[in-house]
C-alpha cells in the first residue's frame, strides 16, 4: 500500500509543472491592454462643463434613461472607425449616445462633427481631461453603458464596431432591461 503511495509521490513534480505551465500559458494570451474599470456599478461622476457647442452642461443634463457615453477626439483615428456604428444607433433611435470630447480643441471637435456627422445627443467638452480622470479613462475611444439611475454598468475600451455591439453591448443592455422590469 505505502509503495503505491510512494510511487504516486513521484508524479507530484510533474503535476506541479503541468499546473504552472497551464497558468503561464494562459498568461501569455491575456490582453493586458484592457484594464478592468473601477467605475463599474458606481454612479457617473459629477461635472460642470460646456458642450462642444458652448452650452453649459452638468450631470443633470444626462438622459434619464439608459445611454452610451462615448469618449472621442478629433485626433483619434479609431474613433472614425467606430463612428458609423454610433451614426446607425442614433439614426435608428436604439439608445441615446452622449459624447465626451476628450483632450481636444473645441474648433477641431466642431469641424470633426461637421465633416463626419454628429451621432451624439450632445458632446461634453473635456479639454483638460479632468472628467476623463474621474471616469478612469486612459485614451479614446472608450464607451460606457450607463443605466437609467446614472450608474455605470459596462465599459468597452477601443473600437466599438458592429461585432462588439452584437457580442458585448446587446447582451449587456438586454440584461439591464430585464433587470429593471
Amino acid at each position: 500500500m505505502s509503495a503505491i503511495i510512494q510511487r504516486w509521490k513521484l508524479f507530484i513534480p510533474v503535476l506541479a509543472f503541468v499546473a504552472l505551465s497551464a497558468l503561464l500559458w494562459r498568461g501569455l494570451y491575456l490582453d493586458t491592454s484592457e484594464l478592468p474599470s473601477m467605475l463599474i456599478d458606481k454612479p457617473m461622476p459629477a461635472f460642470e462643463l460646456t458642450t462642444v457647442e458652448g452650452e453649459p452642461v452638468s450631470i443633470d443634463d444626462l438622459p434619464g434613461e439608459m445611454f452610451l457615453l462615448n469618449v472621442w477626439g478629433s485626433y483619434c483615428l479609431p474613433c472614425l472607425v467606430e463612428h458609423p456604428t454610433f451614426m446607425r444607433l442614433s439614426e435608428e433611435g436604439e439608445i441615446p449616445v452622449v459624447g465626451v470630447n476628450y483632450r481636444d480643441r473645441k474648433d477641431l471637435a466642431q469641424e470633426w462633427l461637421e465633416d463626419n456627422g454628429d451621432p451624439f445627443a450632445f458632446s461634453i467638452l473635456d479639454e483638460s481631461g479632468r472628467l476623463g480622470i474621474d471616469l478612469g479613462v486612459y485614451g479614446a475611444p472608450e464607451t460606457y453603458l450607463v443605466d437609467a439611475n446614472g450608474v455605470i454598468r459596462y465599459r468597452h475600451v477601443s473600437v466599438l464596431d458592429e461585432n462588439v455591439w452584437q457580442q458585448e453591448f446587446i447582451p449587456a443592455i438586454t440584461e439591464l432591461r430585464s433587470e429593471s422590469q
Binding site: R103, G129, R130, G132, I133, V137, G139
Partner: peptide
Amino acid sequence: TGGVAEDLRRE
C-alpha cells in the same frame, strides 16, 4: 509623454 500621464501629473 502620454496625455493621461500629463493630466495625472497635473492632478
